[in-house]
Amino acid sequence: MNKKVTTYDISNELGISRNTVSKALNNHASISEETKKKVFEQAIAMGYKKMVPGTGERTAISQSTKCIAYLTRIDRSTNGYWMNLMRGVEDVLRGSGYDMKMSFIKDEDIISLTVPPMLNSTIDGFVVVGMLNKAYTEKLLAHSLPKVFIDLNAELPITDLKADLVLMESEESVYRITRHLIESGHREIGFIGDISSRSFRERWIGYSRALHEANIPQNPSYCITSTHSISYQSFEGIADTLGALEQLPTALVCGNDLMALHAIRFVKEKGLRVPQDIAISGFDQMKETELLDISLTTVANNEFQLGLRAAEELLYRIQRPNRAFEVIHLSTKVIFGESTHTTRP
């Protein structure tokens, strides 16, 4: 049996992003006519199943009676983590006879509380990837279609949640890392992460619980948690905030590896050493951390499995709409690296 052609295969053949391919196939206005033509022709040549050969200048995308929408705010298609997660969703849907349509939620949609038009078409359910603000999330939650969220705004209680939620285990993993730092003699331990996200909030709780059990007061000046103070994903944002501190902590627990990489760069540019002067940990086991000259203490998870589980849960919800909603945590593994291997006097 021939292998099914996907948008990933088309993007590889053309040397363009998968997002560009998806937008071209959906006739998105932001894609040039030349690129659309190239993508359509390549899709037909490769036997992409959604393409129906026509006699005009352009072919048409067939309408499937079994289709799932994949909603996300930011174009993450070129990021390895989010690409693997999306592949997991597609893998399950493909094996179950469903097509997947992607929709990017724009800032103006969030301001106007406008849901993607495809949710009002022949869609059987949808997956929401990444954290959105409370008001827009409530708008999506109010939609009658079956839905699964991967992460959620932390302001929304999970009690009486009218949707399924899939997350990586976070609290216990970060608790173990923080306990490790405490047992190594650290007492001035900071945290970096936007705790308006439920996954980051759970990491914050694990960090806070470890300090509480060790009777170590939490110092707010060491914690970068405000939803408005910095851009957590940029070096400049984290560097500016850390640089404004009167005194740096002896250890930093970061909400993900990207933040940890920014913190390590800042520390080194200040002429300090990791872990001798400041111990730093992350979360996600990003491949980019392999470029460091030391191994990073982090938490290994499997984003492909996260996508698989979210898609499986959505299909389960479509088939059993009246069953109790679920909050699912996938297991993770703490990886202790050199970045926290230090003993304080």
Rank of each mutant, 00 (worst) to 15 (best):
K4M: 12
Y8A: 01
N12C: 00
R18L: 04
T20W: 00
K23C: 06
K38C: 05
T55I: 14
R58N: 11
A60E: 14
S62C: 13
S62N: 13
L71W: 09
I74H: 10
S77E: 00
G80P: 07
G80R: 02
Y81R: 00
L85R: 02
M100I: 08
D107I: 02
E108K: 10
T122W: 08
V127D: 09
V127R: 07
M131A: 09
L132R: 03
T137V: 10
E138A: 13
L140C: 04
A142K: 12
H143T: 10
P146C: 05
K147S: 09
K147T: 04
K147M: 03
D151K: 03
D151I: 03
N153P: 09
N153D: 14
E172T: 14
S173D: 11
H186G: 07
G190W: 09
I192C: 05
G193L: 06
E202N: 14
W204S: 08
L211E: 04
N215S: 13
I216W: 02
P217D: 08
T225H: 08
T225K: 11
S226V: 09
S231N: 15
Y232N: 08
F235P: 10
F235G: 12
T241M: 14
L242H: 01
G243N: 10
Q247C: 13
L258V: 07
A263E: 08
K270L: 10
P275G: 05
P275T: 07
I278S: 10
I280Y: 05
S281G: 03
G282M: 04
L292P: 03
S295Q: 04
T298M: 06
G307T: 06
A311G: 08
L315V: 11
R317W: 10
I318N: 02
R323V: 13
E326C: 10
S331H: 07
S331V: 05
T332Y: 01
T332L: 01
G337E: 04
P345V: 09
